[in-house]
Design a protein around this nucleic acid. Structure first.
Lengths: 333, 333
DNA sequence: TTCATTTGTCGAAGCGCTTCGACTTAACTA
DNA sequence: TAGTTAAGTCGAAGCGCTTCGACAAATGAA
């Protein structure tokens, strides 16, 4: 930087001001400085800048612990968050930390490496959220906290349910099952599980059809068992909506065993499951494709905005899923 | 840090030496210092440390550009690399950069933020590898470079092919097709495509069975078309091995349309496809599960070792895939 | 005209660490 | 005994930036 200053015949600090724009610099001087930077192939050193300015321009995204099933959706979050960060001149580091043990998170934030963190897989009364609030540490969320406070982006689950249900209604289905995620997720207050359940039951009530909510562990086996007991009790069901990706092969297997054709006898639709995943199934699944990339991108942009002070008070953004019709849904029998 | 020094009645530098172990410190003094650190809840500041020492203890993993199909495997790489880094006191940042445009990579490395980078999706004559070599910038690879130089971990493709083929042979299959990835990947010299092709053809030659290699774009449609033309020409084929995940639904659809039962009439096995993915199919696929987590972890450990100088000259590590038998393979018809 | 304000620039003091050289004391060698 | 060496510690000089206060020159208001 000193070399640049010398070459441009200005002082060190003037170069700094020219780069950051913190103080006015005459057009002429600025040009000289930038030319010198170019010629010397100068790049400011992020660590030095961070040390002096107290802003590292590094963000972290908190990755849920590895054992839990991470999917393509999480991958999209992360990849797009990194992309968005990079576009604003930030770096993104990956932290994997136990959702329920904020101690690790405390250590990491107190290190002072990162300016802010992005949280995903938000649960009811999430201890990480509480911790970050207490520390007054900047963060944004993919998903919502109980009290709808803080900056977040989330999927519009209500719209998702409404759209898929309206679509199925249009095909003549009047007895529809909803395969949610596990009971324990529901009890833990995991947002998507809670909200889709509410939205589904609300839709059922308002439309007067018959709806059946089923909790199901994330395994084909569990899906297989649940669909069997369910169909035994309610043989009138003609459509299944599933937010449980891993249960779907189980449902399909049961259908094959009973000789139910999909979609002839039973329509099957996924929600919050990527098109890529839906295309891996035979028949290709109808799905409400989640806006994973946007969520990752926007959570990052939100955080950066709030760090840089251009904050529209509390931004709450809901993004809809997008219906992609496959070959697994058709007119009711 | 000064507070700690005062509290422990030593100088600033002594605290530094106690932490880093760079110079001998008496046991007694060290204890006093650590106690003071504890009491003051002191954490060294990574930026300051990095600035002074020229080592940021930050690594980067280079993410292939987003449009290209990223899968669970890549997610595992990244997640486990972050985990491994964190265990050694490093941070991992995510960089997404075009595989074929090293310019971005040059900028990023010259910034001086990171101590080393992890590369994946290595191609023949990979320009990123060439660049990093020219810059003498530390890196490790998930995958191999042409000349087998540098530090890498990779899947043992030969073993993978041998194991799945031996398994199929044991079931009596004598006419086996291998669905590889696209022709263009092959021409680009993408490691897995090149190596599995060679290994497959080698196995076929040595065992005397009939083998058919098929290049296939990563889509169900392409898989559907290729299997149809292939079976028309070679109706004796009783088993398909696929390293092309997305082609598999197409193969299954064709099988269903022709009335070929899987595995009764046609056995279908995936390689380098995760168990998680295999479980999403009906019937559950037999697969050679890739050691994604280990690859991510080891690539990171390799890099850290070489950065810290504990380098066993050029470490070349091959990790085998693991056969997980599903319901898609059975005795030859 | 005079005083206040704005614009553009500079020098210097840090940011929180690492590391070098120097120093002291104790222990070992010749 | 003097001369080395090793262990343990300290002070101070940076690392490459940002930012504060100061100041000169140009501009506007009274």
């Amino acid at each position: 930087m000193l070399d640049v200053a010398k070459k441009a015949n200005v002082s060190l600090s003037t170069v700094s001001y020219a780069i950051s724009g913190t103080r006015p610099i005459s057009e002429e001087t600025r040009k000289r400085i930038f030319k010198a930077m170019e010629e010397l192939n100068y790049r400011p050193h992020p660590l030095a800048r961070g040390l002096a300015s107290k802003h590292s321009r590094i963000l972290a995204i908190l990755f849920p612990a590895i054992e839990r099933g991470l999917g393509l959706t999480e991958l999209e979050f992360v990849a797009n968050a990194a992309e968005a960060a990079s576009k604003s001149g930030y770096h993104l580091v990956l932290w994997s930390a136990e959702t329920n043990d904020p101690e690790e998170l405390r250590q990491l934030t107190q290190q002072g490496l990162v300016d802010g963190v992005i949280l995903m897989e938000i649960h009811k009364n999430d201890r990480r959220v509480n911790l970050l609030r207490d520390l007054d540490f900047p963060f944004s969320m993919i998903g919502r906290y109980d009290d709808d406070s803080g900056e977040y982006v989330d999927i519009d689950f209500q719209q998702t349910i409404n759209e898929i249900m309206t679509y199925l209604l249009g095909l003549g289905h009047k007895d529809i099952a909803f395969f949610n995620q596990s009971q324990s997720s529901f009890e833990a207050g995991y947002g998507p599980v809670v909200r889709t359940k509410a939205a589904f039951e609300d839709f059922v009530r308002k439309s007067g059809i018959n709806g059946y909510t089923v909790f199901c562990r994330p395994s084909p086996q569990s899906g297989y068992e649940k669909i069997n007991t369910l169909m035994e009790k309610h043989p009138d069901i003609t459509a299944v909506v599933s937010m449980n990706e891993r249960a779907i092969p189980g449902i399909m297997r049961a259908a094959a065993e009973h000789g139910w054709k999909i979609p002839g006898d039973l329509s099957l639709a996924a929600i919050v499951s990527s098109v890529k995943m839906a295309e891996m199934m035979v028949p290709r699944l109808t799905t409400m494709d989640p806006p994973s990339a946007e969520l990752g991108r926007m959570a990052t942009e939100l955080l950066i905005k709030s760090l840089e002070g251009n904050c529209d008070e509390s931004p709450h953004i809901l993004i809809p899923c997008h219906l992609v019709v496959g070959e697994s849904t058709g007119p009711a029998a």
